[in-house]
Amino acid sequence: MSHQPYETYLFSGEHLDQDQQNSLEAHLMTCEGCADIAHAMNQLDQAFFSSTAPSPMPGFTDRFQARLAAHRLERQSRNLWLMTIGLFALASLIICTIMLLHLNQINWAYELTQFIARTSLVAGQIRQFLSILKPLRAGLPLFIPLMWMLTTISLAFIGVIFATWLQSIIRLYSSVQERGSKS
């Protein structure tokens, strides 16, 4: 027995006109298989439409706001990392390009030794400086925060550098003037 178009009528879920409805009903009287399907579809439709939609637990919006804040923090942190990596990559690229451009002029062994020696020297000086600061820090009143101390020291250091630079400019200028007056 052919079950078409009756199966299509049952499964399509579309509205049937009167002729289609009559022909389907006549078929269902004689076909047990299609009658079972019609019964199943009726039961399912009833069950679906009478089924209640589940609701979230109270406080969903508050949980969302908290999650959004956490998501933002995570994204900011990720962006910061990406920016750092990007800057590092850019700096490396620039250094590599400069090195490649002066490849023939560079004595690699000498430069490397010089770099290690200079780094060790600077590290040693910083260590000495910190060892001088240690008793000073202990003698200073406790209410002076460390950041203030560091800021003051940095400003003093910048001031010394600036004064030295200014002095060298003045000397250079005066020597140029002297040469001019002699000639």
């Binding site: 939609a53 609701s55 979230p56 637990m57 969903f60």
Partner: peptide, 24 residues
Amino acid sequence: YQKPVFSLCYRMLGNSRDAEDAAQ
């Protein structure tokens, strides 16, 4: 829209914990 979104997620995933996570 929390209710329709949660309801959809619940029907799709079958449990409240996953539905809450998916809706959020």
